[in-house]
Amino acid sequence: MKSLKELEEIKQRTLDSVNLRKDRSGGTRVVVGMATCGIAAGARPVLLAFLEEVKKRNLGDVTVSQTGCIGVCRLEPMVEITCPGEEKVTYVSMTADKVRRIVAEHLVNGQVVTEYTIGAAE
């Protein structure tokens, strides 16, 4: 170890991978509906696509978790995204391709992809 800078680099490199273990309120939360209907409708590939994109783009401070049935089974797979200080956005009929766009536009640039939301589908 030669300098504090070097130490800081190790810290930053590892921090994202341990951040999850703190009780926290900040950060972006991605929740994928993974009840039986969701899994049947292809929720796993959606979840995996989120993980891959987050990993690829080095997005710290994002948690990806799953939940049971969100309620509107015919629109599964569904995903809820909550950015800090903003209303929850619900996306429906998700696919891996849609995930890539949502990560790029919503998570990275803060632009909700309106056409995929539950509001557009109803």
Partner: peptide, 15 residues
């Protein structure tokens, strides 16, 4: 050791 460092480990020593 990286996890200890991620929680500010060895920073006090550096300081």
């Amino acid at each position: 050791i990286e996890e200890y460092i991620a929680f500010d480990g060895y920073k006090a020593l550096g300081k």
